[in-house]
Simulated assay, not measured.
Amino acid sequence: MKREDVVYGLIFDEHKQKVIMVKNVGAGWTLPGGAVEKGETLEEALIREVREETNLTVEVEELLAVNEVFFIEKDVHPLFFTFKVKIVDSEISILDHEEIEDIQWVDLNEADALMPYFTEGVEGLLQGKLDYTFQGKR
């Protein structure tokens, strides 16, 4: 199985109690992020991916979760690293409409429904306890 590293950024607005999520063309809602390219660190990939998907410049704060899954038919074993990040510049906008359909601030209940693989939900992640989940074989 081919191993693949994927990074995601959790951008949380404490006042509104919402997170930024992106709707990927043909793939549904996720946190902004994507695959780590050869020669990149996780942090470098995360900053690049968030910028490409949301036009936001972010600063990486801390690792919140590690998830992994085996995609049997695709013969891929991705590891997903979710980091808390904060916005340092720019306004939200879609830069690549062929990849991203929509960007929204989503309340915590809706975010939890869209991301059930975080065992204690987004609030659990924000408490700073590192979460690990094996999502099984698919």
Score class of each variant (00 low, 15 high):
L79M: 10
V66G: 01
F81C: 13
I72G: 06
T54H: 02
N67C: 11
E61H: 02
T57L: 13
F70K: 13
T82C: 05
D75M: 12
H77I: 12
V88E: 02
H77C: 10
F71W: 08
L63M: 03
P78I: 07
L64W: 02
E52T: 10
L56S: 04
E59M: 05
K84E: 10
E61C: 04
F83S: 00
V66I: 14
V69C: 09
E52R: 13
A65L: 04
L64Q: 02
T54E: 02
T82A: 09
V66N: 09
V58H: 00
E73W: 11
E62L: 09
V85I: 08
T82D: 01
K86Y: 11
D75H: 09
L63C: 00
T82K: 04
I87F: 04
I72E: 15
H77L: 14
E62P: 01
N67Q: 13
K86G: 07
E62G: 11
T57C: 12
L64R: 00
E62F: 00
V58I: 11
F71K: 11
I72C: 10
H77K: 14
V85T: 05
D75Q: 13
I72L: 14
K84W: 07
V60M: 13
F71H: 13
E53Q: 15
K86D: 12
E53K: 13
E59A: 12
D75R: 09
L56H: 02
F80N: 09
V66R: 05
F80C: 09
L63T: 07
L56Q: 04
L64D: 03
F81E: 05
L79T: 09
L56M: 08
L63D: 02
H77M: 13
N55H: 09
F80R: 06
E73F: 12
V58M: 00
K86P: 07
L79V: 10
E68L: 06
V88Q: 01
E62M: 12
K74S: 10
V85K: 03
E52A: 15
P78H: 07
V60Q: 10
K86I: 15
A65V: 01
V88K: 03
K84P: 03
E61V: 09
N55I: 02
I72M: 06
E59S: 08
F71E: 05
K86E: 14
L79D: 02
E73L: 14
F83M: 05
K74T: 08
F70G: 00
V69A: 15
F80S: 10
K84M: 06
F83T: 03
L64M: 03
F70Q: 07
P78Q: 03
I72W: 11
T57P: 00
V76C: 04
E68G: 08
E53A: 07
N55L: 03
E53D: 12
I87C: 12
E68P: 07
T54L: 07
E62N: 14
V66D: 05
T57H: 11
P78V: 05
F71L: 15
V76A: 05
V66C: 00
K84R: 13
E61I: 11
K86A: 07
L79P: 00
N55C: 02
T82S: 10
E59H: 04
T82L: 08
V76N: 06
I87H: 06
D75S: 15
F70T: 09
I87G: 10
L79C: 06
N67T: 12
L63I: 01
V66H: 09
